[in-house]
Structures are given as C-alpha cells and as structure tokens.
Amino acid sequence: MKILVAIKRVIDPDARIRLNADSSGVEEESVEYKVNPFCENAIEEALVLQGAHGGEVVLVTVGPEDVTQTIRSGLAMGADRAIRIEGVDTELDSDLVARILHKVVERESPNVILLGKQAVDGDNNQVGQLLAQYMGASQACFASEVVLEGEQAKVTREVDGGLETISIPLPAVITADLRLNEPRYASLPGIMKAKRKPIDVLTLDELGVTDTALKIEVLSLELPPERQAGSMVESVDDLLDKLKNEARVL
C-alpha cells in the first residue's frame, strides 16, 4: 500500500493578516506558516491506514525551499519520505497544482491519494476534484471515515444532507474533512527522526509539466469590513425593536 499525501502550508490562520501595498496579495513579511489543518487530517489518515495495511506514506508539496519546514513537520508525524516540487505560491492556482500532482502520481503510482478538502487560505476546495479528473480516477471528497477493503475504499462523506457512504475502486483520490480524525502530535523521537528522512526536490521541467499558464488571475484582494462597535440596550423591548427595525432580522 502506497499512500501519497499532498500537503500545503498556509499563513497561520490565527494570525492577523495584512494586504501588501497594491492589494494584489497578502503581506508575507514575517508571517508564520503552518500546515493547513485539513492536510494534517490527511496525513493522520494516511498514517492510520499505513498502521493497518502497511506500506509507505509519501508527502508531496509545491513551493520554494522554505516549505521544507512544513514538510519536516509532516515527516515528524511519521510519514516516510517527501517530494518537494519547486514552485512559487503566486505562480500557482488549483488547476496547475492538480496537473503537477497528476505528474507526481504517474511517477509514484500510489494506491491512495489523500488531500485536505481545502486549504484555509484560499478556501478553493478544487485540487482533489481536479486531480481525480486528470487521473481519470474515482474521488471521495469531504471524507469523515475511510475503510480500505481489498481494491476498494469505503468512504463516508459529509454532504449537505448528512452522511453518504460510497465504495470506490483504487487508486482513488480522497479528501479529508475535519471530523475524519484527530491528528497526532509530532513526538520528540518523530521530530528527531524527521531530520534524516529523504526529501526529493524536482523542478516542473524535471516532472514534465510544460504548460504553467494559470487559469485564475487575481485582480485584487480586500479585507473584510471592520466590525462595528456594539451598543447596550435598556430592555428586552428595546432589543426587539432594534432587531426588527435596525437589523431587520425579525
């Protein structure tokens, strides 16, 4: 069983973000990066599946050299090795990432490809689905439970109406929802071992990705409006009045 987990780093979601001078992107000076939380669920699931079925867990990410730290924290959780594809965040969109991952899948031939359902920065929720399309493989997105049975994966998905359980043939793309599992902490022995685990670095050329055109062009970003100050009301009647006539929610 070989499991490929595609991971992404995101700017610390708890940090206050600022836009750069021309509002074309987020200010990246002195920000802290973390592994996207859904990607941590994906890594955890891969490790759980590896525990049950044996095999290898391989991480892959696209980014400049400093994403190595993100990779190491995944290796510290217990993944066996990693691949970093050279890339620059601003020169990527979901479609290009999916096409890059498709090439990686062709090289690695994994049985299962796990991703987070979306990254909490752009919240695009596209890469898993696009990758499955490019591979011509089955997909099960928003997974809250994954069971491997022979050449099939039985996946419980969180959908609008509740839970849906589907059976899909391997190799397949599965994207992790938050309730899939509780990611483990990287233990100290894990952290120390991570240093010695191999990280292969490939360029887009080496991978055979020639078309690097983006399908999405970011025109500008804006911050959400500042929250207005609240006010105290004298009585329940005042509150009802305000809810009816000012907020118009009643």
Binding site: R72, Y185, L188, I191, K195
Partner: peptide, 18 residues
C-alpha cells in the same frame, strides 16, 4: 533549530487541545 521549532509546535498543540 528546526527541531526546536517543531518541539515548540508540539508543546503548543498539546496545550491548545488538551
């Protein structure tokens, strides 16, 4: 080093969650 950072990260996660 990077290892220090990862140890810090694990400590923080334990604190936040448990």
């Amino acid at each position: 080093t990077e290892e220090h950072d990862m140890i810090r990260d694990t400590v923080r996660k334990i604190i936040e969650r448990d």
